[in-house]
Design a protein around this nucleic acid. Structure first.
Lengths: 187, 187
DNA sequence: TTTCCTTTATCTATCGATAGGTAGATTACG
DNA sequence: CGTAATCTACCTATCGATAGATAAAGGAAA
């Protein structure tokens, strides 16, 4: 990454450098490990290769940063699920949470933020609720039929808990066992 | 609480003052809001009415404090469940998580710690895994029959996720809806 | 007097946040 | 066109507050 290190050489910064995105990437990775208080402007800046003041330039306060973190996470998560009325929708939801576990080895950002929701700034909490509402809505559409709300809640909450429990026990197979039974329960 | 405020008056400290327990109480309440990084020696000390150095006397490091926090939480949780082979055991497990939601309005301590497990000191992580193993073991005994492991995992992970999701959305009824379906799914 | 608990006082490290400045790109205008 | 004003993105340096942790000393209990 010599281009990223050579700063201001007019070469690595045509138009908008993707610094802002890289800041979000680094912050998300750290927040999905330690939660809201588990990352700092300095840590994020160091990971990207800038100074903490630069992070403040893009995100004035930590609430701003974390709020956009949760919003971007929600967008990507829902977009990654595809259409809820296409075949195999429920399996894709199960696969999305499994990817967090087996590919990223990370907690769901909004699951972690949700666990500490009473200790979060207002804007972050609102964004977290936005994630759960969007995901529950997607799941309700994917399930269809009757009693969709409670069935969607069972599926999403169950997968969230399965991810949390599997990661805690360092037993990724636990997730698959739970997911299989959850899917059968909400069919 | 004038007795708690009048310090060292030889009245509020016969034999072993319950300072240690009160420190754990205050720390648990804070940790169940903001997680491991959501409480500090100073905050805990202020809540109890002592200085932070006194907290360090009882718990030299934060890892010590958090580890005992998780261990005590596990003991009380399992003890509060009663006998897993007595009638209504599954309902008592559901009620235990519901009490955290509706009475304490707090997250499960080890659920929150579990969400940030990769950012915790080793001892704390081990204690958190101890909680999940103990609870899963209790649930497996309570359920009985065949395929108890996966059924217990579904129940415990599901309840943990239901608590997390209900608190995030500030919708306590969500927990009951999910719990009802989980119980039916693992019967 | 010895032991336990708590205090005062302090340390180093880091936190989120701000001030002020610089280089380069963009835009407005004569 | 050229140049002046503005904007963007970063920098250095620093702020007051707080983090976890420690040493030394005081005081109550046995």
């Amino acid at each position: 990454m010599s281009a990223a290190h050579a700063n201001g050489t007019a070469e690595n910064r045509r138009r908008p450098p993707d610094r802002r995105d890289r800041i979000l990437d680094a912050a998300e990775r750290m927040a999905r490990r330690g939660g809201y208080h588990g990352f700092s402007f300095r840590e994020v800046a160091a990971a990207v290769g800038v100074k903490s003041a630069s992070v403040h330039h893009h995100f004035p306060t930590k609430e701003d940063l974390a709020t956009e973190l949760a919003a971007r996470y929600t967008e990507r998560f829902i977009a990654g699920l595809g259409a809820p009325d296409a075949p195999g929708a429920v399996d894709r939801l199960v696969a999305a949470y499994r990817a967090a576990l087996r590919q990223d080895d990370q907690m769901c950002l909004c699951g972690l933020f949700g666990a500490e929701i009473d200790a979060l700034p207002i804007g972050v909490g609102d964004a977290v609720r936005g994630f759960f509402r969007a995901t529950l809505d997607w799941a309700a559409r994917a399930l269809g039929g009757t009693g969709t709300q409670a069935r969607a809640e069972t599926l999403v909450a169950g997968l969230e808990g399965a991810l949390l429990t599997a990661r805690s026990l360092r037993d990724a197979d636990l997730y698959d066992r739970v997911a299989e039974r959850l899917v059968r329960a909400v069919e």
